[in-house]
Design a protein around this nucleic acid. Sequence first.
DNA 1: CTCTCTGCAAAGCATTTGCACATTG
DNA 2: CAATGTGCAAATGCTTTGCAGAGAG
Lengths: 144, 144
Amino acid sequence: MEAKTVDAGLLQSRYRLTRQRSAVLRALGEGTHLSAEMILERVRAEMPGVSLGTIYRTLDILRGIGLVQIFSYGGSAARYEAVLDKHHHLLCSECRSLTNVTAEGVERIARDMAAREGFSDIDFSLTVVGRCRDCAKHSHLQSV
Amino acid sequence: MEAKTVDAGLLQSRYRLTRQRSAVLRALGEGTHLSAEMILERVRAEMPGVSLGTIYRTLDILRGIGLVQIFSYGGSAARYEAVLDKHHHLLCSECRSLTNVTAEGVERIARDMAAREGFSDIDFSLTVVGRCRDCAKHSHLQSV
DNA sequence: CTCTCTGCAAAGCATTTGCACATTG
DNA sequence: CAATGTGCAAATGCTTTGCAGAGAG
């Protein structure tokens, strides 16, 4: 029952552990940077009939508990991922692919920023937007 | 005609300089972290009849040229600001207020991340989400 | 058994788009 | 003038919500 590991956070919370929530957690354990629709697809594979509304409600709860992290960047649908390690994001402005990257030193800077302005209970994330290797290769567009 | 300074970027671009675009740039020069609606309000003050669609189209162009920066964080409407200095953001998870902060060292880290993964033409931004001083003071909620 | 969760379908926003006319260069 | 830009209004896409029945503890 490795599910227990995944579900632990929910069990410890004030929320009920339902099959739907468990399935969402499992989906997020298998894939990363999933949109709500993509999660719905995966969840429905083993449990048809689940609604998108439930996915969104669940994701919201999981984010509140701190099990899930949202990445949203104007326009497209938000992406969700399980909170495992602390990492940052590279977003390709062309193909919209997302890459996780770890980076040293960001935490200290973030904590300094927060301290200077009196922020508490912080989370932080460095996002780099640019053109990924593949898109740079496959296109002959000039940089602006 | 200080407008020239503001309009320069557009004049140098392949886009036409219209009264609407000029007004959007001026609005962004006066306020920061404005939503499209807020910009519309300001622009309409001097030029009634401008449409929201035009604001969005203009903002998109300005972002493409690099004159404007978007900040979007799930749920609420995106915020726009003129690109003046390089800064980062503190977002209060409670009152949703946005604060600009400059920080040393972020650029080198971002460039390292990009280099490691082969990203080019990058822009980067460190976002810290937390509880601002005021919200921490006025509420007696426990940290999660 | 009570309280919470879910599916369904409709509503809500923010943003985008097609089109005919107006404007810029 | 030819090419672009604009207003209008409708369309789109993502996310949220009200409600009545189902499920968890």
